[in-house]
Design a binder for these strands. Structure first.
Lengths: 100, 100
DNA sequence: TGACAATATTAGATTATTATAATATTGTTC
DNA sequence: GAACAATATTATAATAATCTAATATTGTCA
């Protein structure tokens, strides 16, 4: 009996890689509080427009985020609530004092 | 109130990168069942000796694994049980049917 | 001490990620 | 439909991650 069976290791490691980046992780954390449009994420992260857009695209393609157009703006949100569990587990490691 | 505060994002993303690799994740999963020596991990993963050794070194330096020499063999184990929580959260995403 | 077993390290070429700059797309308003 | 705002895409140069092959280290035992 193994934590994650061999057949799922490849997918799981790809999923990890998809969030294993400073900017992408920051985006994910911001989106924990609900959907945000790109302009808001730009403001919140301080990234360049092009760079943020590319990272959003990557997370979208990896199935981590979903987006929805509203007029001229595009809103992003976390696609699968299970990813929030992952963030929480991370938080437990890197800022345990916040996790009482 | 944010999932992981900005000041911890860098560390957390580095920690993620440290396990965001097929072989390293496989090693971590094997070690969920208890310590193993390098030869056993070689057998279990099918990696080359040099390659495995380098990945073990990386995880050791990132504080994810600890090692202990016993005679001519070296045993590895998960350094911080909180990492097991991370694996479980991953499992919840990539093989939810196993998580009832 | 010499030979062997187990593991670690180094050097190197290859491939993957990343950031920036430039350009393109899409929607809105007049 | 022209001008603008918001976002996406492409090209590309720079950096980082990876694997293999070769070599080094450490411990055991005769």
């Amino acid at each position: 009996m193994q934590a994650i069976p061999q057949e799922n290791i490849k997918d799981a490691s790809q999923g990890l890689r998809a969030i294993a980046h400073e900017l992408r992780l920051a985006v994910l954390c911001h989106l924990m509080n609900g959907p945000m449009c790109v302009a808001e994420l730009l403001e919140a992260t301080g990234a360049s427009q092009s760079n943020l857009s590319q990272h959003l695209a990557k997370m979208r393609m990896m199935g981590i985020l979903k987006n929805e157009r509203r007029g001229t703006q595009v809103y992003y949100r976390i696609a699968d609530p299970a990813f929030e569990g992952l963030i929480m587990a991370l938080k437990n490691i890197y800022c345990p004092e916040m996790c009482t």
